[in-house]
Design a protein around this nucleic acid. Structure first.
Lengths: 145, 145
DNA sequence: AAAAGGAATTGGAATAATTACAATATTGTA
DNA sequence: TACAATATTGTAATTATTCCAATTCCTTTT
């Protein structure tokens, strides 16, 4: 966890992106909270330690991190963006009950597709929706009453 | 094409959803324009034939169609929703240059995943981004000058 | 055919996410 | 330390979407 953070900060330094206090905190937050947070979640959480923090700043920082390739935008909701420090290819499942987003691995080979052979593919996203084990359990309990 | 429209209208009748003029037109639009349109695209296009049309109505109708399972929401953009009458499982690729969205088939088998064996999966979405053949061609032409 | 009741449409206002922008503050370097 | 470049901040603007109350349109009943 700590290692990832150091790698990210090194990457930023390498790209001549200043390690301002705010940026450090956002990176730290993303490394410590693998919850695919929204801008608002990040903002609200950091506002405690940085009272002057502006939401615009959070937007700016995330934009910088995304452009630097250190963070990926998740478009599983179409009303608000979520952010993921895990930039390796993986799938996301959003639980319809609790709203949490879970990661899962994907086998790449499966995507080779003749229809797309003349396309240049830059990004592959896999989004599932469903119900997580915990919420399945809770739902079944409801039926007992 | 016409067949699909008739099937959709029959489905609506079966679910006791009135075939109002506006609804007929929206269904007709979706059947004739497989461009994964936004609400705005639908609204602007239909406003010509239905001058009194309200954008709220388009939102309402689409909500009804989605709830009836006749239309699917595409969340490939996270700033605005797109709608697809093709409810069969398929992937979407959005061209970064021209913005068009292309359909492609997916092999289902590939998604069986141990990590998700305790989840209830209700929907699977696959979104790629990249560049379409036409735009690849246009870009290469630019370099000649 | 008229009346009544329910459903759909409309438009304007409210909400929420995001962006634009100008002023201020911070940082790195000479 | 001083300068220039970059980052942050707050407010205002923009955009997509939802809310809601008034009106209109169907459908059914009388």
């Amino acid at each position: 966890m700590k290692k990832m953070q150091d790698r990210l900060l090194n990457d930023l330094k390498g790209k001549n992106i200043r390690l301002s206090h705010q940026r450090l905190k956002v990176v730290e937050y993303l490394c410590q909270n693998h919850i695919h947070p929204t801008v608002d979640q990040i903002y609200l959480s950091l506002k405690n330690s940085i009272p002057t923090l502006s939401k615009t700043t959070v937007y700016n920082i995330l934009k910088t991190l995304v452009e630097a390739g250190l963070v990926k935008v998740i478009t599983i909701d179409n009303n608000e963006s979520r952010y993921d420090i895990n930039t390796q290819m993986h799938g996301h499942l959003k639980c319809e009950k609790c709203g949490r987003i879970f990661d899962f691995n994907i086998q790449f080979i499966s995507f080779s597709n003749d229809e797309l052979k003349n396309f240049e593919i830059s990004e592959k996203n896999v989004y599932f929706t469903g119900v997580c084990p915990k919420c399945i359990e809770n739902t079944s309990q409801d039926y007992r009453s």
